[in-house]
Design a protein around this nucleic acid. Structure first.
Lengths: 144, 144
DNA sequence: CCCTGCGTTTCGATTTTCGAAGCGCTCGCC
DNA sequence: GGCGAGCGCTTCGAAAATCGAAACGCAGGG
């Protein structure tokens, strides 16, 4: 499978429009999840794998190389993986989706078996949306 | 394939956390694309298919039922498909990703074969980010 | 009547993902 | 030194998702 890059054709679009490349990159299974799980700091291969509900290592390696190729993730000298500046931005761009999912859950049913962590994002939504979730981010719990 | 819903386990996560369900739903090929292409109004089946680079009709039907199941898309009496309120919100949540892809393209190389439509989002980024791209949205061009 | 476009289904071929096993390595420990 | 545990990563067959082309019945127009 070829790694999507803005400016050249990708799976499902010959135009090379950046968003289409991004949609290709992130539309692959586990891509978004990996970025999401790296948001709170570098992780090694196996720890990251565990974090991602024990996704298969083969796919994980594939995704990681794609993401590194896209300069979204980078590998530390100690071989752990971390988000690049670009990657952190992508994670930030993912934030609205996290909040949307809350609304989605709420809209689909009144009492959908709350997960403890779910409170954080809800609070964040209500909170003063001043400043775009500055650097430190993740204030407190995970917004999954 | 089972349709992801917040509150119950999904592919790759037993927790039922809303974001994981959303990641499952949108992590499937073409899901995001379909939402994106519906952002500027209802479309019939074949027209939508063409818009999505002629994706295979079988998968399109599958995605559409999943999205309808998730109340993100609804079918009009004249059988065209349109975003629900929830769907439009999802599309809005997708907007930061569209802008990110611009930055991504810019960062990866200086001159990556610009597509005419690409200008819109760039402009939007620079523009007064006041109010979250209010209802009317899509002002003018497509931000792909 | 015929042609075109529509929404939708079906089915075999291809691609992607899974999942378990294994490799070589490093580290701490007895 | 020998041992076990954890690591990053690869390989490979099986299962699942996706593709792509064909077809169906239906509507409308010429």
């Amino acid at each position: 499978m070829s790694n999507p890059k803005p400016g050249e054709p990708v799976r499902g679009s010959t135009s090379g429009r950046p968003l289409m490349a991004a949609l290709d990159l992130f539309g692959r299974r586990w891509s978004l999840r990996i970025v999401w799980e790296l948001r709170s700091g570098p992780l090694g291969f196996r720890p990251l794998q565990k974090q991602c509900d024990d996704m298969s290592s083969s796919v994980m390696r594939q995704r990681l190389s794609e993401l590194m190729d896209a300069h979204v993730v980078r590998q530390l000298p100690d071989s752990r993986y971390e988000l690049t500046a670009l990657g952190r931005d992508a994670c930030l761009a993912l934030d609205p989706l996290a909040r949307w999912s809350q609304r989605w859950a709420a809209e689909l049913e009144p009492e959908p078996a709350r997960h403890p962590d779910d409170q954080a994002a809800t609070r964040a939504t209500r909170a003063t949306r001043a400043r775009t979730v500055g650097e430190g981010a993740v204030e407190g719990g995970s917004a999954d």
